[in-house]
């Protein structure tokens, strides 16, 4: 899922780059200040230890010049930090009057992604073209979440009733792990997502494929699963384009099999994992909204083969 360290210093976009540079600079200045204070304290401890029989030192009550110095110098450093802050902020100031290229809607505990230009809709795995700065609109369907891809962009809260904007861009193709950073309830810990940056042609191909309904021509086992899917309550929450399933409350499954992961990027998308999930989702990701349907093994394998056919 994620080979490299997902650290804020391994930035792969201009927006994150600016911040990590700024961060390192500020950290160095802070470290120097800490060292000065520590040096002052430790040298005092070394030099001015009480010696048995020693007298109390002469009282010294203060020194206005020193006080002025250590008021003014930190003040100046902070003014410098403030200018850096203003400059850094400008780098990631998304416009409010422009239409977003991508709309991300957060749910307890998964992510919905809508591509307004192509009408494509997907979940948890968000594809973007490499090297293009995209304006992302962030909206929440329930509580406050936070959209954070440490290596690509500053985090931004996803607040119900308060749409936010964010620049998103990746310099290199690859998978970038994102996660929800604002506590949002029971499964906040497992509300991850992937930003999958692709070269523009690959991205276009992906969009085109996603725009179509899933391939027809199911095998017998898959058809059995398909009938199960349509006859059970799956359709109340999930959508599969080209079928009567039109539920909106849970991830769209039209191209489920083309995804790398399941359960908001907590397990690789393999038939075994999917079967485990269907057998009892509450055991894999406790407290999520999908209940344990107590499916038989035969039902699980039927559904698994159907879902894994939705390329």
């Amino acid at each position: 899922m994620n080979e490299a360290l997902n650290s804020v210093f391994h930035s792969e976009s201009p927006q994150a780059e600016v911040i990590s540079g700024l961060f390192i600079l500020v950290l160095i200045v802070c470290a120097v200040i800490l060292l000065i204070v520590a040096a002052m304290i430790f040298s005092s401890l070394a030099r001015f230890r009480h010696k048995p029989g020693g007298l109390d030192p002469k009282p010294r009550h203060g020194n206005w010049k020193l006080e002025t110095a250590w008021t003014v110098i930190p003040f100046l450093i902070l003014i410098w930090f403030l200018t850096l802050t203003a400059k850094g902020m400008k780098e990631s100031n998304p416009p409010s009057d422009q239409k977003p290229d991508l709309l991300v809607i957060s749910h307890q505990w998964w992510w919905e992604a809508r591509y307004p230009q192509s009408g494509v809709l997907t979940a948890n795995e968000i594809h973007i073209p490499v090297g293009v700065r995209w304006l992302v609109g962030l909206e929440s369907a329930d509580v406050i979440h936070d959209f954070w891809v440490p290596r690509l962009a500053p985090k931004m809260d996803v607040v119900p009733g308060h749409p936010n904007r964010l620049w998103l861009e990746a310099d290199k193709p690859g998978n970038y792990l994102g996660t929800c950073a604002e506590f949002c309830g029971a499964q906040h810990a497992q509300m991850h997502f992937l930003i999958i940056a692709q070269s523009p042609p690959e991205f276009e191909a992906w969009v085109e494929k996603q725009g179509k309904p899933p391939p027809r021509g199911l095998t017998e086992g898959e058809q059995k699963g398909s009938r199960l899917f349509q006859s059970m309550t799956c359709v109340n929450c999930h959508t599969v384009n080209g079928t009567p399933a039109k539920g909106q409350a849970a991830p769209d499954l039209t191209h489920f099999a083309s995804r790398q992961t399941i359960g908001a990027v907590i397990l690789p998308n393999t038939p075994e994992n999917l079967a485990r999930w269907l057998k009892n989702p509450q055991a894999v990701k406790p407290a999520i909204l999908m209940p344990d349907f107590k499916l038989t093994d035969a039902q699980v394998s039927g559904l698994t083969s159907y879902l894994e056919s939705l390329k």
């Binding site: 911040i19 500020v26 802070c30 800490l34 204070v37 930090f81 802050t85 985090k155 931004m156 950073a181």
Partner: peptide, 29 residues
């Protein structure tokens, strides 16, 4: 004395939060 050093460290990491873009990266972590 430990208070002095640790509080200074905590205070300085607090300053990094005042630098808004840094806060955007590390808040809630």
């Amino acid at each position: 004395v430990a208070f002095l050093l640790q509080f200074t460290l905590g205070g300085l990491s607090g300053v990094t939060f005042a630098v808004v873009p840094i806060d955007w990266q590390v808040t809630d972590t």
